[in-house]
């Protein structure tokens, strides 16, 4: 698998505080990588490090194969865009002028493409409105447009939907999916809003206390986070043969209780059990989400 970002054993220390403790992660090309962790876990610190804003205390990372300490990193960074913490804009300039400024920084010979970018992020009609007067959603979209100015292959977004209203969240989500699908841009997105992240991410990385707890693909997560049906019956006799008949994986947790993994209607389950002389007393569904997975993972790491 090809990776656009590889991080190997990166640590970052601020005086007595170890913000990153030997982080190793891989962001595959074309992925939407959801970077998950609580406040202070080290998400923004790692993002700052890979964006070149801060140097790692130890360890190494490379972007498109260029190690951070090599001269090639400057070229690799040109294939990258990022919004770290909040969109970095000049408040006294319009959306167009902010993009002009970014085009100049990039050394682009002309301003062709600014209209297209403004249209893409739905800011074409902002005219002479200064960026300082933009809503948070507009600022976020302009930030993404600035990040897109270099035609990047890899975009890093730090908490891109923090503080946005529901409409703004949907707009950003759709924009990310569109860019990922149409332009094959790889995204690394840190977020607290796990439900939202679960709608777009193809890969996940979980960080806590400056350490990566786990990296997992969305397919693996779905397999792990499958639906469960928890049930209680009057007797455990013939229970195994009845559950075999459902065709689903199951686990018997006590003589009269068990869990079925997968989807099955309550009436179907009841009928199968009845045919084996078992009466269904109680049933409930458990849909394990990304959030539950994360909390379990975090609980596990804290117990270690």
């Amino acid at each position: 698998m090809e990776y656009c970002l590889t991080v190997d054993n990166v640590s970052k220390r601020y005086r007595n505080y170890l913000a990153l403790n030997g982080v190793t992660m891989r962001v595959p090309k074309g992925a939407i990588y959801g970077f998950i962790g609580k406040n202070g876990a080290g998400k923004t610190t790692l993002i700052r490090v890979i964006c070149g804003l801060q140097s790692p205390t130890s360890g190494t990372y490379s972007i498109y194969g260029a190690t951070y300490s090599s001269k090639d990193i400057y070229g690799a960074r040109r294939r990258m865009g990022a919004i770290v913490e909040s969109p970095a804009l000049y408040g006294l300039m319009t959306a167009r002028d902010n993009l002009k400024h970014q085009f100049m920084l990039l050394g682009k010979p002309s301003f062709d493409g600014i209209d297209e970018l403004l249209e893409l992020v739905d800011l074409k009609d902002t005219g002479k409105k200064l960026a300082k007067n933009f809503s948070l959603g507009m600022r976020q979209r302009l930030g993404i447009a600035i990040a897109l100015a270099s035609d990047p292959d890899f975009i890093v977004l730090d908490e891109p939907i923090n503080g946005l209203d529901p409409q703004g969240i949907v707009e950003i989500r759709e924009l990310i999916l569109k860019l990922n699908k149409e332009r094959n841009i790889t995204f690394l997105i840190s977020s607290h809003i796990l439900d939202e992240l679960s709608k777009i991410a193809t890969h996940y990385g979980f960080i806590d206390n400056g350490k990566i707890l786990k990296e997992i693909t969305s397919a693996q997560l779905n397999a792990t986070c499958q639906k469960r049906v928890l049930f209680k019956v009057d007797t455990g006799d013939n229970l195994c043969s009845a559950l075999d008949e459902t065709g689903l994986e199951y686990k018997i947790t006590s003589p009269q209780e068990g869990e079925l993994y997968g989807e099955i209607s309550i009436s179907a389950l009841s009928d199968i059990l009845k045919s084996h002389g078992i009466t269904l007393l109680k049933v409930s569904e458990s849909d394990e989400t990304l959030e539950a997975y994360y909390i379990n993972l975090l609980g596990g790491s804290q117990n270690d």
Binding site: G52, L53, M80, A82, L105, L106, S150
Partner: peptide, 8 residues
């Protein structure tokens, strides 16, 4: 940040 991120 915008300047550093793009490799200047």
């Amino acid at each position: 940040r915008n300047k550093v991120i793009i490799g200047l």
